[in-house]
Design a protein around this nucleic acid. Structure first.
Lengths: 230, 230
DNA sequence: ACAAAGCAAATTGTATCCAATTATTATTGT
DNA sequence: ACAATAATAATTGGATACAATTTGCTTTGT
């Protein structure tokens, strides 16, 4: 009875879900090799079904499959990172603006509850992973209020990719997409009109993007590290 | 030398592309069964690679795979149809509004050329299929001007699903997403500001949606067809 | 003659096997 | 001792074989 959590969903879906969760929770860093045979023996299943799961994951851009070279957890480039955030800004701003007419005070209260619940966690150390996951949840909850499941699912994909981007490009200490930022965003939503909310959302996402360290970490500074070479 | 068009792309990609094109061109109606064995012998390839292609297609929602029941060309429900059009309206309106600052007269001229090229075709009869494909091309071209490839690819998916929706729900004669409508849209873009263009795009897509016959074609009218039954 | 159960054919799901490619290690020559 | 090359091991791509499920048909009983 306490064997697997979801008993109904097929084994390949379970593998997919497990890897997805591991990526979201920052346990599987970008670049991690995903050997078909290894995964197969882990789940006691043939490579056939593992391959199926890996292909599904690659269609969501969470893993990258290079021909004859196997699958790895994807490593989005800086350019891709910028595009994902730009896409999120466009999409989430538009969705929020359209939601504004329908947004009830109860909706906003519910969102605040989610945030308050998160405030308990100290946000101190390496549980930044949890903070990132919760940030995603907030954006997902906001999108759900819009009501369009097609856009919801697409945003889900983008948020998933954002996990990888943050894992790759977040500076050592900086907390990203802080709860405070979400609080401020909610304030703007509550107080302002549609256009204001739209701008606030875009500003928030662009701030998150700016907090990243997308520029290469000194690729040519090698000489310096070797003393007074060259 | 004249064997296959694209020699470089792997066989599973080719199958995928062929089916995609067949759907776009309305040659493969929704609901068409896609037997793994049949496709395999058609392309002289094993079921393994056919399955791969079919799964890719299902992730783009062009085919529907039901466990142990095989794959069919997808049949989006009326509810899904509405959501896809709503998603397109939100997305394309937002993208267009953001493009407006960058849009040069040359861009608009290029778009008009595409439309003029299409005007040649009489739009008379069953080549409505071609008209539909060209309509998609117009929207794709417009999206390309925005510059974000992530949103571009997503819109591509939505346009693909739109092919299925039109195949399912377009009334007998009515031409959908007419060239005239696109001309008018371009006029609005050329003349107006960002907000105007946004509204024009939304109005255009909603007009397309309204032209569809989404309501069930008299599911309870069966009795009438059978004379004075009941 | 009709309904229901059972049987047979076809189709999908999964495992295993072989071929092809890539990565790693060993070897050899300078 | 190092570089380049050759041999070997490991891993993925694809085909075949078998198991499980579904579908259509036949048969049987009332």
């Amino acid at each position: 009875m306490s064997d697997n959590e979801d008993k109904a969903l097929p084994i390949d879906r379970r593998i997919e879900a497990d890897i997805t969760r591991a990526i979201y929770d920052q346990r599987m860093p970008p670049g991690t090799r995903l050997s078909e045979e290894r995964l197969g023996e882990l789940y006691e299943v043939s490579r056939t079904v593992v391959r199926k799961a890996l292909f599904q994951l690659s269609s969501r851009k969470l893993v990258e499959i290079r021909p004859n070279r196997g699958a790895r957890v994807a490593q989005p480039s800086a350019a891709q990172a910028r595009e994902v955030f730009a896409a999120r800004a466009t999409l989430e701003a538009a969705m929020l603006e359209e939601s504004m007419t329908r947004l009830t005070p109860a909706d906003i209260a519910a969102l605040r509850d989610t945030l308050a619940h998160d405030h308990d966690t100290p946000t101190d150390e390496a549980d930044a992973a949890e903070s990132i996951a919760e940030s995603g949840d907030f954006h997902r909850a906001l999108a759900r209020l819009h009501g369009n499941t097609v856009l919801q699912e697409f945003l889900d994909e983008l948020i998933g990719q954002t996990s990888l981007i943050i894992a790759l490009y977040r500076p050592r200490d900086a907390a990203l997409c802080s709860h405070d930022a979400h609080d401020a965003l909610l304030d703007a939503i509550e107080a302002g009109d549609a256009a204001t909310a739209r701008r606030a959302m875009r500003a928030h996402l662009m701030a998150c993007l700016d907090a990243l360290e997308l520029d290469p970490p000194q690729p040519a500074a090698l000489a310096d590290m070797l003393g007074r070479a060259r």
